[in-house]
Design a protein around this nucleic acid. Structure first.
Length: 451
RNA sequence: GCGACCGUAGCUCAAUUGGUCAGAGCACUGGUUUGUGGUACCAGGGGUUGCGGGUUCAAGUCCCGUCGGUCGCCCCA
């Protein structure tokens, strides 16, 4: 069923969203907080394509995973190659690592963000084009890499104001040997009670038996309770690794809950698996999820390379994050009359070059422009008078009326071009950080800024 | 892919049991008020009630389909 006709009013493609205003601000806020935290942890940016050859995802995520089996946006390009819009970050980054020979850089700590695509039924916190922030540590076998990564995720959540109501669930899937033994035991356990399983879980038994462990079906729950845990199948080395991750998190001050039934959706995961979950987002409660994928890069054709990573849903994070600082600008430049138009432009450009954020409303007369300035959140308005008069003059007016206004006005005045600037020419600090200036009694009206 | 609910001006909503019900506020445009803590007043543009079909003397109001949204299942960040 294709729907190519253009309706009278165009609709976005199903599951795709348009962001403007507060929504767009919140989105950018999550990304900028993430980038800031990542850099403070010593991570570097990485950019990889949105399109990959289909097999990059098909092989690494597991042919039987739902994402590969029925949720990928795959198509043949004009040369007939099968390409896929990335449904996740890790496989593409692993592919790039192999393609570009990045093993020459030793351990890499990388972060990325951007759009992902999955053909799913849209729902709260789930969209067909969605966005993630992503972090990976590649080529480190140390449990301390897992610890640092998880601590970084924890820091991000805190700085977004999402501390409370979120719990970190932690588990280990063991190494390849442990995982295979556990999986076989689970299949044995559930197959023995096949009749009691829900229809969905009988299907999972073939495709992805670990997933039965987080079934919501009440009938399944009873069987899950009696299912074998990973513990009995853990090799000594895998047990020590998990222990080191737990002790490291405690030392880092990151609270977690051991969750033996926690599993991951993709085949490539080994050892550490974790999710930051909340009950405040309905059914899509995972904010950040990740784990270790030691076998993936080798399976991709690269050298044996241990790695860990996580991804967080931006739409989910922005739904819970504290409101970002209100958008605004330092000053609006308003021409009083048509004759002042060009002088206003000159002043606006000079102020921007000096580091001020400036809007210059261009619709309607001075009255309308002042209203537009208010709408833009400008903290001050600079009225520009007819420059044909002598002396030329401007009137700088405060809008915000808070304690820092006097300092802000002084900082703007100091950045005005000739002949309006402060005679002394002293620049009180740099913008915009110091634009708040020293605390003083608020100057209501700065009077006539004649130079 | 399955289920439930929903779809009226750009936005938020109104319209008695299907019968002058196509409206209000905000937004937008123009004007007036010499300007500043989102000033007030006047005027104006704008809707084939998502789309298509059906029932009826009559449908925004009922039925079917379709597209989209919301929530749940499933899946996952």
């Amino acid at each position: 069923m294709a729907h190519d006709e253009a309706p009278r009013r165009p609709q976005p493609v199903r599951g795709m969203q348009d962001f403007l205003g507060e929504q767009a601000d919140r989105f950018d806020h999550v990304v900028s907080r993430f980038q800031d935290v990542a850099r403070r942890f010593g991570f570097r940016p990485v950019h990889v394509p949105v399109l990959e050859h289909t097999h990059v995802f098909a092989r690494s995520l597991g042919e039987t995973s739902d994402v590969v089996a029925k949720e990928m946006y795959s198509f043949a390009d004009r040369s007939g190659d099968s390409l896929t819009l990335r449904p996740e970050f890790t496989a593409g980054i692993a592919r790039a690592y192999v393609s570009e020979g990045w093993q020459r850089f030793g351990t890499l700590k990388l972060f990325a963000h951007g759009p992902l695509f999955r053909y799913e039924r849209p729902q709260k916190g789930r969209y067909r084009q969605f966005h993630q922030v992503d972090a990976e540590v590649i080529a480190s076998p140390s449990p301390l890499a897992d610890v640092e990564l998880i601590a970084m995720a924890d820091t991000l959540l805190r700085e977004l104001g999402i501390g409370e109501g979120v719990t970190l669930q932690l588990n280990t899937l063991g190494d390849a040997e442990s995982r295979a033994a556990w999986r076989a035991a689970l299949v044995g356990h559930f197959a023995a009670h096949r009749d009691a399983l829900s229809e969905d879980s009988r299907r999972r038994l073939e495709a992805n038996p670990l997933r039965i462990l987080d079934s919501k079906d009440p009938a399944d729950r009873a069987l899950v309770e009696r299912a074998p845990g990973i513990g009995a199948f853990l090799t000594a080395a895998a047990g020590r690794f998990f222990e080191a991750v737990c002790r490291g998190l405690e030392a880092s001050g990151v609270a977690f809950v051991e969750t033996p039934k926690l599993v991951r959706g993709f085949d490539y995961y080994r050892h550490t698996a974790f999710e930051f979950v909340t009950d405040r987002l309905g059914a899509q409660g995972t904010l950040i999820g990740g784990g270790r994928y030691d076998g993936l890069i080798e399976a991709m054709g690269g050298p044996p390379t241990p790695a860990v990573g996580w991804a967080g849903g931006i739409e989910r994070l922005m739904a819970l994050a504290a409101a970002p600082p209100p958008p605004g600008v330092d000053v609006a430049v308003v021409a009083e009359c048509p004759e002042a138009e060009h002088e206003a432009l000159r002043i606006a450009q000079a102020l921007r070059s000096a580091g001020c954020s400036v809007v210059a409303p261009f619709q309607g007369h001075a009255r309308k422009r002042a209203e537009a300035a208010a709408r833009a959140g400008s903290r001050a308005i600079l009225y520009v008078r007819d420059p044909g008069q002598t002396p030329a003059s401007v009137n700088l007016v405060d809008r915000s009326r808070d304690a820092g206004s006097a300092g802000r006005l002084a900082a703007i005045r100091a950045r005005l071009p000739h002949p309006y600037g402060t005679p002394t020419g002293a620049l009180p600090g740099s913008l915009p950080g110091s634009l708040s200036g020293p605390e003083r009694s608020p100057a209501r009206n700065d009077g006539d800024g004649r130079a």
